[in-house]
Nucleic acid binder design. Structure first.
Lengths: 188, 188
DNA sequence: AGTGATTAGTCATATATTTGAGTATCACGG
DNA sequence: CCGTGATACTCAAATATATGACTAATCACT
């Protein structure tokens, strides 16, 4: 039940609408938490009812109006309380890994294609995250920024996301290569 | 809805009881899928009803009796069908990353402690996975094994688990170090 | 002789998440 | 001037996952 805390954490640095939040959860924030738009709207409504965030209507001429949310003091307090609680072990859920677990029984062709596709996807994320990191640290070096920057939280989690995707890409490529080699060998 | 497929994949190489499966999901298999015992028992019951696995009672003198499950041909077919479907992007859910995202607002002490704890946990998993990999490849070299071994699926996913935990450990250590340095600096 | 851990599960309930279908406005390309 | 896609949401229902409480035997110890 940490979706609420993920939302609070995402709203710490900027005021966002549900829609923007959904976009963020589909990119950067999704590094560490995954959720669909519907969930986010529902969670924001609950958080507002509980006074952990406040929304304000922003009237737009050219676009539908939106509601921007920001974390209240109570919200920050809740996040601080959460930060002090024991954490559950992180977990991954990945279709592709399930398939590779069954690799010896399921035909390598489709698997190789999926591994290749995933590697390409990981590459795209690596570039995206690289860009985000550069943007966050500006003209400072990484070390400089991490030592003296004001908001390093998002930077640190983005670093983890980057490393994760690099690991993903490397493993996908290597695994695909191994499967290719084996099928080539078997065919003869 | 890939829990069923994770269960099938886990049962491919050995006949297991629900209890053993739960253990496996708490260790190796949990690399790529996470589930509680209750879920596994429920899923096994459903899979049996649908004819994707068959269970057989094993009477034990010294322990309570158990039911061992194995994948049927229909189960294997279902897994093969699944292996050919598009995969959803993998996702992580991690309390600790949420907390680090909020690092600039929540007090570093607790965070550093949790990062250190997580790094130690990752270390334990690294050792465990290293041992599992050695066991699986026996006296063969890794390259030899991956080229000519019979069942490499579990080996490949375990490799991914190992790399993930190494990344986890490194990031936790580095992040903890950065937070420590910053608090030391601020205190002055 | 009693306590706690391990094996081997079951049941009920609550919460979280996903699936699917809608609503409405505006911008842009052809 | 029509379709496509983006912005900005909402609602209902189905499914998956998590929480908590149980049973019951055996082992390893103190």
């Amino acid at each position: 039940m940490a979706l609420r805390h993920a939302v609070l954490a995402a709203l710490l640095d900027e005021e966002l609408s549900g829609y923007q939040l959904a976009k963020a959860f589909d990119m950067g924030v999704a590094n560490f938490w995954h959720a669909l738009p519907q969930q986010l709207y529902a969670e924001l409504a609950k958080l507002e009812k509980e006074g952990l965030v406040t929304g304000r209507e922003v009237v737009q001429d050219t676009r539908p109006n939106k509601r921007l949310f920001q974390v209240t003091e109570a919200g920050l307090a809740e996040l601080q309380r959460f930060a002090a609680t024991a954490n559950k072990p992180s977990f991954i859920r990945d279709d592709l890994l399930v398939k590779v677990q069954a690799a010896d029984h399921v035909g390598a062709g489709k698997l190789i294609a999926q591994l290749t596709e995933r590697a390409a996807f990981a590459d795209a994320k690596i570039e995206l995250f690289g860009g985000l990191l550069r943007q966050m640290r500006g003209d400072r070096s990484e070390e400089e920024f991490l030592r003296h920057g004001e908001r390093i939280g998002p930077y640190l989690t983005c670093q983890r996301g980057l490393a994760f995707e690099q690991g993903n890409r490397d493993w996908c490529r290597q695994t695909a290569a191994i499967l290719r080699e084996r099928t080539a060998h078997v065919r003869r």
